[in-house]
Amino acid sequence: MTLPDLSGFDAVVYDLDGTLVNLRVDWDEAARDAALVLREAGVEADAMDLWGMLDVADDHGVRDDLERELAAHERQGAWTSDRLPLADHLPEDGVPSGICSLNAESACRVALDVHELEPHVDAVVGRDSVATEKPDPEPLLATLEKMGVSPGSAVFVGDSARDEVTADRAGVAFRYVGDGPSGV
């Protein structure tokens, strides 16, 4: 894995899953459990992906219930997550650092704690921390605001095209953790 050059930036915001750690989440099981939450609300969701389920949950007033279900799966996956090579550089980067993730904030915090990275992170924004999720720029901008850093002086490091689009929309430099995008 090629590590990105992060020199020249006053702050670094990292995606979590696929960038610093790999959460061990059984996404098929999470989707089945999410579909049950929607079925209880009278919505047939078996053919939907998780993002579609989240959108439908908003429309039917069960977003909080669905978030709790998904967050439980993500926290479980965080407890058994694998640390990735870039995580070893986080304590040494020497600048304010934050996390902006599509995972639940509580799962991010578990993973950071498990891998002893929490003391090196100044702000954490997860899928459920703000009203929108990546690729909307709001989560990344909220992370930078919590860090007291302007978008023009920071870099966002991620593993997906969605992360790159988020950075572009927020006016933040972007670097891939590896050799390119892993999906949108």
Rank of each mutant, 00 (worst) to 15 (best):
D10Q: 03
S129T: 15
G158W: 04
P151N: 04
M48Q: 07
A71I: 00
D26S: 03
D58G: 14
T132C: 04
A87P: 11
G18L: 11
L66N: 02
E133S: 14
R24K: 13
R169W: 02
R175M: 12
P119F: 02
V165F: 04
A41T: 11
A123D: 08
P139D: 10
L16Q: 04
A57G: 01
D28F: 04
V165Y: 02
A170H: 08
A131H: 07
E40A: 14
P135F: 03
H73P: 01
G8K: 11
A34R: 04
G183R: 11
V149F: 01
A72F: 06
G158Q: 04
V155K: 02
P151Y: 04
D82W: 08
L6R: 14
A41W: 11
D88Y: 03
E69F: 00
R24M: 08
G52L: 06
E133A: 14
N103S: 05
T143D: 06
N22M: 09
A104L: 12
C108Q: 12
A167H: 04
E69S: 09
A34E: 07
P4N: 12
S153G: 08
P96G: 08
T19G: 08
V165T: 14
L38N: 00
G77C: 06
E44K: 09
R68G: 03
H60I: 03
A47M: 07
T80I: 11
L86A: 08
W27A: 06
V110E: 15
H89L: 15
M53V: 00
G158H: 06
C100Q: 09
E145R: 14
N22G: 04
P139R: 05
A57Y: 00
V172H: 08
G148K: 01
T19N: 10
